[in-house]
Design a protein around this nucleic acid. Structure first.
Lengths: 233, 233
DNA sequence: TGTACATCAGTGAACGCGCGTTCACTGATGTAC
DNA sequence: TGTACATCAGTGAACGCGCGTTCACTGATGTAC
């Protein structure tokens, strides 16, 4: 395979990658709000203004890290799902949950950037972040959709109907995430999605407190099972 | 009722309260990481060093805001629960959930301080924050405990046993939150607790995206019902 | 293959800014006799 | 009730710091003929 990139292009790509790596490591030690162009430049061994060859502004640097984070998480989730048999719906759901948690525990600062407090003064540009940002929920929807199509979803009979306005929201969402499942299943899926991240956030962002749970693994596994129950898997 | 406080003491209390109020409003516009002693002083109409009469350091100011936030949330949750009949267990759970969400939507910045990303370089002093910080989960535990004591909890029969290490955690937790309910119910409660905050965080911190849900109220109500189901209420 | 020119990564100085915290001080309020 | 003294809120200057961004520049790498 002929490499059509010039040395300069390769050097540029490498530097951009270095900037991202350093940025993420600074996220870890200082937090997103304290992420500084100058600090990244310092660690890259370059004068601060040089960074502006690669990044338009500090906000642009943040966007770089956001997209990089979403992509890494998305890749790991996809890889985890791919390892499970297609007809093991519950197994695929559990694999997604475990992948999210594993990544979050390994990259708590990036997790906090993506799923924690908004960074003051920073507005993520939707056209660059929306795609990567919807990969996890996309993977989840696919699991429920496959399970429903296979007739493997068991929901209680006495489920109340989805209210009108919410049903309209679900319809709109299905333009992006096509699905033939009943609206109630989608709503349950949204709960499971939010709940999954709630569990991970409590652990990663430190809500449980330092000495409350020693068996967090067991707790999380049980939480996944309960959420799988709720979505009828 | 004789007021035994001196004018000086009253003035001091008033100023402390002003500092807290201003601090929280700055949280809203700038975020926790950018909270600055100087900015608070400026808005209080006082020279920056004057703040140090009231607050030992910037971290101490943050702690003030953390405690104030937990207390406000705790008060509103308690008030909401008190309005519901004691034997309406599901109603009490729903009331807690709604109170948390209402407060979070009204005070998103303080919510982010308490339940979002940790503030870099700041470690909350446990002896001042743990008490106020456990009021919501305390209220929830009381609901489940009352429901169980009244024989009103319906859980599936085929629930797997709680694993050994996790069961030990539950035992330890019960020293602080006494309960006679089966361990499985407590674990389900922890899920519901984390899931509740997961739902609120997604909405308040902006994970759902700007145009995804128009009927967030209906969505949240449904989520509460599903969580009540999960905990057998 | 050799030369002239264009592109581009990185430099270094400068801009104006806000930050947390210390310190010696002034002057008003409170207390003891 | 009046006076001497102690307490304490707030002042203003100063410390040393790091920040984002602009700008004219140097020198190396790449390209066209």
């Amino acid at each position: 395979m002929a490499d059509t990139t010039t040395p300069r292009e390769r050097a540029r790509a490498q530097t951009l990658q270095d900037i991202t790596r350093i940025g993420r490591s600074h996220l870890a030690t200082e937090g997103a709000a304290a992420l500084s162009v100058r600090a990244v430049a310092r660690e890259l061994g370059v004068v601060s203004s040089a960074i502006y060859r690669y990044v338009r502004s500090r906000d642009d640097l943040l966007t770089l890290l956001v997209v990089d984070g979403y992509d890494e998480l998305g890749d790991e989730v996809d890889a985890a799902v791919a390892k499970v048999a297609v007809d093991d719906h519950r197994g695929r759901f559990v694999a997604i949950g475990r992948a999210v948690r594993r990544w979050a525990l390994r990259e708590p600062a990036t997790y906090a950037l993506l799923f924690g407090s908004p960074v003051p003064g920073y507005q993520a540009p939707g056209e660059r972040t929306t795609g990567p940002g919807t990969r996890v929920i996309g993977a989840l929807v696919r699991v429920w959709e496959d399970a429903y199509a296979a007739g493997a979803v068991r929901l209680p009979d006495d489920t109340p109907p989805v209210p009108r306005k919410l049903a309209a929201d679900v319809k709109r969402i299905r333009r992006e995430f096509p699905s033939s499942a009943p609206e109630d299943l989608t709503v349950r899926g949204v709960l499971a999605w939010a709940a999954l991240f709630g569990c991970v956030s409590f652990e990663v962002l430190g809500q449980y407190g330092p000495d409350t749970f020693t068996a967090v693994d067991q707790l999380f596994e049980r939480q996944l099972q309960l959420l799988a129950d709720t979505t009828g898997l």
